[in-house]
Design a protein around this nucleic acid. Structure first.
Length: 268
DNA sequence: AGATATTCCTGGAGGC
DNA sequence: TGCCTCCAGGAATATC
């Protein structure tokens, strides 16, 4: 499931194929993902030159020299296939470059999205305007301020993209474990000292995941390039009942309808 | 306003 | 080539 590190890895991989290239052809193979696709996709992107690729939270952004930006979200099952040998089921968008290379946006569950916006209006787009700070940049002071007065469990607040933008279920669980914070703890009641550990833990876990994801970048160049999803052994995520490094057992609970994995002995 | 529930969708896992 | 149910995930939307 693509979270921030996977999106970052994806953007870096797409950049190798797209940056500085002209878009020769665009084909939308269905009218919608989670939302309707932009109707003027082909008209506005065909013939445009890609000048930059970036990431904001879990969104990837492709900027063109016409002042347009294609914004993609991978949802939970989305990935870009690079130079696919053939079009496959769930390839919803095809993009060909002037070099004859092809990108296919594949998303079986269609939780992802594609939007085409004016680059200078991105900050005011409703998908972006309410987003909180980037997890790689947020400070303990900012966290303290944004959590102030909030009574919901810290786990749920960290998933709220308005408070901090880009964390998903996996890395919230992992960051709270590293910071030694109980996921049920009331967000507004966590001390600055502990938030410093949390800010550091968030940064560390993401940086490590991006570094590992980066090692799969070469997959982008392979003919049937599968996007190498970050896969490593998590400390707690998906490990219910297994032993924690401390000797305790990882527990699972449900918060806001989503699974939380944590170690009751390490997290207080 | 904040908290909570529901909705979208498919494929994989596990039970029988 | 078995069928069924459940579950996973992010974010928009609805409801209290």
């Amino acid at each position: 499931m693509p979270e921030l590190p996977e999106v970052e890895t994806t953007v870096r991989g797409l950049s190798q194929v797209l940056r500085g290239r002209r878009i020769a052809r665009i084909e939308a193979r269905r009218p919608n993902l989670r939302r309707p696709l932009p109707i003027d996709l082909g008209q506005r992107l065909t013939g445009a030159n890609v000048i930059a690729l970036r990431r904001r939270a879990k969104y990837g952004i492709i900027d063109t020299d016409r002042g347009d930006s294609l914004v993609f979200h991978l949802g939970m099952s989305g990935r870009w296939r690079i130079d696919p040998a053939q079009v496959e089921k769930h390839d919803h968008l095809l993009l060909d470059t002037d070099e004859g290379r092809r990108l296919a946006l594949n998303d079986p569950r269609r939780f992802g999205s594609l939007d085409l916006l004016r680059t200078d209006e991105l900050a005011r787009w409703n998908g972006f305007e309410a987003l909180g700070p980037e997890p790689l940049e947020i400070t303990a002071d900012e966290l303290k301020q944004r959590l102030a007065g909030r009574t919901a469990p810290i786990k749920l607040l960290l998933l709220d993209q308005r408070i901090i933008a880009g964390l998903g279920n996996i890395y919230v669980c992992e960051a709270l474990f590293r910071a030694g914070i109980d996921p049920r703890r009331e967000g507004g009641s966590i001390s600055l000292v502990r938030l410093k550990r949390l800010a550091g833990a968030i940064r560390d876990v993401l940086v490590e995941a991006i570094a590992v994801g980066g090692s799969t970048l070469r997959d982008f160049a392979s003919p049937d390039g599968e996007l190498g999803y970050f896969s490593k052994s998590f400390a707690v995520y998906g490990r219910e009942g297994q032993l924690c490094a401390c000797g305790g057992r990882v527990k699972r609970l449900v918060q806001g309808g989503r699974s939380t994995f944590y170690c009751p002995r390490c997290q207080r």
